[in-house]
Design a protein around this nucleic acid. Structure first.
Lengths: 125, 125
DNA sequence: CCACCCGGTCACAAAACGATACCACCCCCG
DNA sequence: CGGGGGTGGTATCGTTTTGTGACCGGGTGG
């Protein structure tokens, strides 16, 4: 029973961190920042994320010490975001997940289609 | 520029999969199912998830071919959920992420605290 | 002059989430 | 025999999160 108790608290802790960096936008941003600093609007276009969510996600990431924000008071003002060492350490796990995602997207789509097909055979109209 | 274009579509695809299995409940369920079949209420207690979300998450996971649902018409009726081979293939990436989460939880908390501290110095009372 | 870029915020709608209650079934305890 | 409990789920309702579009200030090109 002790193992179970241990597992429970472990889940709580994982849950805790995942609720911070485990959302898809955060992971996508980490993924997009893998090769160095990127500008705000570049991220926005590349990820297909709304300005608001990108702004929010980046601020949370910055708060959690995963990215740094560099403001260049040029004309036009430029803002670049870059991974911190902590952020870089997350690259590996995120990479594993994105690689898996890329590799199994078709598989998931197929499973979903067959599930939906057998689940609702007379769902037409 | 071709590389950029490639990156863009790649992000879209990753985003696509992540919107399916990239939420924290799905990953937590995969994590909890790593050692074999687990019952509905056992998962609920272990993960600290509401019945509604667990039910939804499990159905989505089943739809995407990541878990299978085994119904035992006993008294009381027992339902167990188990990872499919596809689900097992996700264990690695999820493991990487959960390990990272466990390892860097303190780091994140510290970063957050210092960020909040310097962000709102006169937020007392 | 108007339109567009930059980075970002505001207000609002839509969707997701969480807690609770409820279902049907059966068991155990008193 | 009645009350409370556990099983796996769904329905409802209120809150939180997410997403959409407009808007801001500043500058530049047509």
């Amino acid at each position: 029973m002790k193992d179970v108790v241990h597992t429970i608290s472990t889940c709580q802790r994982i849950n805790d961190v995942l609720s911070r960096v485990g959302d898809r936008w955060s992971m996508l941003v980490v993924y997009a920042l893998r090769d160095g600093p990127v500008r705000f609007n570049a991220l926005k276009r590349e990820l297909g994320i709304s300005q608001r969510m990108l702004s929010l996600t980046l601020r949370n990431l910055e708060r959690d010490g995963l990215v740094t924000r560099h403001y260049f008071p040029e004309i036009p003002p430029r803002v670049e975001y870059e991974l911190t060492p902590l952020g870089h350490s997350l690259r590996g796990p995120v990479r594993a997940l994105t690689d898996w995602a890329l590799a199994h997207l078709d598989h998931i789509d197929a499973a979903r289609e067959s599930f939906d097909a057998q689940g609702e055979p007379a769902a037409g109209a």
